[in-house]
Design a protein around this nucleic acid. Sequence first.
DNA 1: GTAGCGATGGCACAATGTGACATCGGCGTG
DNA 2: CACGCCGATGTCACATTGTGCCATCGCTAC
Lengths: 168, 168
Amino acid sequence: MELYFERGYDQTTVAEIAQRAGVTSRTFFRYFVDKREVLFAGTDAVRERLVATLDTVPPDTTPLGTVRAALDAVVALIGDDHDHSRRRQQIITTHAELRERELAKLAAWSRALADGLRQRGVDEPAASLAAEVGVAVFRVAFEQWTTGPGDRSLVEVMHDSFGRIPTA
Amino acid sequence: MELYFERGYDQTTVAEIAQRAGVTSRTFFRYFVDKREVLFAGTDAVRERLVATLDTVPPDTTPLGTVRAALDAVVALIGDDHDHSRRRQQIITTHAELRERELAKLAAWSRALADGLRQRGVDEPAASLAAEVGVAVFRVAFEQWTTGPGDRSLVEVMHDSFGRIPTA
DNA sequence: GTAGCGATGGCACAATGTGACATCGGCGTG
DNA sequence: CACGCCGATGTCACATTGTGCCATCGCTAC
């Protein structure tokens, strides 16, 4: 992250990152599958947390309500450091490779949530639709939150967006 | 595409593709920014078509209705060759790099649709939400259609999914 | 004819990522 | 304590991707 801020993402090589960390490039690639993956170290943990939270949701909750509850729990973890999120997001959005990776991570959330819903007895395509729509709402809320001034909490913005899910 | 089927995606090098096409690798990279991009040659045109279709939708249509109309028009173009879509999708879903690129392309659709909606006077976050939800529905429907037996048309599956958009 | 120009080739190069093997430093077991 | 195992790291060679730069070729307009 230091280096990405100092010299920009493209101008930073894996060799430099490794050197800064006191290891060799080879070791870097043993810890991160990618050069991109450095910025997404935490997202897999978030995904697991997301799935774990599903168990705490009452069984009679609607599919989208369940997804929303899981996202709310996770958002409480992410949403306390507006500045960090904003700067990280700035790096990501200005590089296509990183945007792609972020989409992939969110898609993994969506898949995991859909799996979880199916295990709760929700059938297709309801499970996938609830998961996809829920994550879509998160995406919009998160983008609005990181680009905004940070006067409103992420939880608030999320709540707002969930209330504005469009209907045909 | 031939080569990707013959030897698999990873086992195919750009040099081989170029040779099959009777050009050099250098020329390949002048036509495609990426090795991945070969499989997504058409999606940018679809995006433009998507945006162009927005103009044909009556102004008093709801945001999501507008998005749906645009997607319907585009789906009519894609949805006639189930076998081609199925095989292409099989290659894509089995390779992380390609899945990422596909997500990026769909995200570009979403962005373009949101832009179009804003130009029609829809404000944020309604525009982004409608675009994201619409594309999410498309994603689910398309996945269901390509993995299914193909007895139902894509338009049908889409219609179905749009009718099942979850509410909290 | 010739000057210009777009498309292609050729070349050198940086950087990413991987496989194979060597090395080092503990750590438990005899 | 000596030994051998084992996980983490280093080293090296390598294929592949992707880019910058310049040369070349063929066509077209003047």
